[in-house]
Simulated assay, not measured.
Amino acid sequence: MFIINELSEIVNKEVISFHMPGHKKGKIYEKLGYVNVLENLYKMDTTEIIGTDNLHSPEGIIKASQENTAKVFKSDYTYYLVNGSSCGIQSAIMSVCNPKSKIIVNRDCHQSVINGCILGDVDIKYIPCEISKDTNILKGVNVINAIDIIDKNLDAKAILLTYPTYYGMTYDLEYICNYAHSKNMVVIVDEAHGAHLGLSEKLPKTALEQGADVVIQSTHKTLPSFTQSSMIHVKEDRVDLNKISNMLRITESSSPSYLLLSSLELAVDIYENKGKKLMEELLNNIHIFKNNVNENLEIYSTNDKTKIFISAKNIGLTGYELENILRKKYNIQVELSNYYGVLLICT
Score class of each variant (00 low, 15 high):
E191L: 00
K31T: 03
E280G: 03
K100H: 11
I332P: 00
Y271S: 07
Q333D: 04
S182F: 02
G60R: 09
E30T: 12
H233F: 07
I16D: 09
I62L: 12
S8T: 15
I16W: 00
Y300I: 05
H287A: 12
K25Q: 12
V72W: 05
E201A: 06
G84F: 02
P128G: 11
D121F: 08
P256E: 10
I127A: 02
I118N: 11
I159T: 12
V122K: 00
L343M: 09
F18N: 05
K313H: 12
Y175Q: 13
E323G: 10
F226S: 05
M1P: 14
T306W: 00
H196I: 09
I147F: 10
V37G: 00
S86K: 08
T347I: 10
T78M: 13
E174T: 03
A146D: 08
V35D: 12
P256R: 09
G88M: 04
V82S: 07
T306E: 09
V82L: 09
E298M: 12
Q333F: 02
S65V: 05
L138A: 10
V105Y: 01
E295N: 14
S301Y: 14
M231V: 15
I325V: 10
Y29F: 15
L241I: 13
G319D: 01
L322Y: 07
F73P: 01
D53F: 02
K290G: 03
R327V: 01
K305F: 04
I50V: 15
I3N: 13
H193Q: 12
V268D: 05
S101V: 06
R238C: 08
K133G: 11
N115Y: 12
K27S: 14
L282F: 03
S225R: 03
I118F: 07
A195I: 05
I49W: 03
P21N: 08
N285Q: 10
L278H: 01
S132L: 06
A192E: 14
E272A: 13
D134I: 07
N314K: 15
L248E: 04
K274A: 00
A156P: 11
N291A: 08
I124G: 07
I244E: 05
G26R: 01
M247G: 01
I124C: 07
T227K: 05
T78F: 02
A156H: 07
M279S: 04
G116D: 01
E191V: 00
I104C: 06
H220I: 01
K274Q: 06
T78Y: 00
C87P: 00
N54F: 09
I244R: 02
N314A: 11
A70L: 06
L154N: 11
I288Y: 07
G140L: 06
S65F: 03
R107I: 10
K274E: 03
V187G: 10
I286R: 04
V215K: 00
I288T: 13
K24M: 13
V96P: 06
S86C: 01
G341T: 02
L7W: 11
N314D: 14
E272W: 03
E130S: 14
S337L: 03
I124L: 13
I150G: 06
G120R: 02
E280W: 00
L266G: 07
A146T: 15
I131K: 08
Q333P: 00
K277D: 15
N40D: 15
H110T: 13
V141H: 06
I114P: 00
P21D: 14
Y42K: 15
L322G: 05
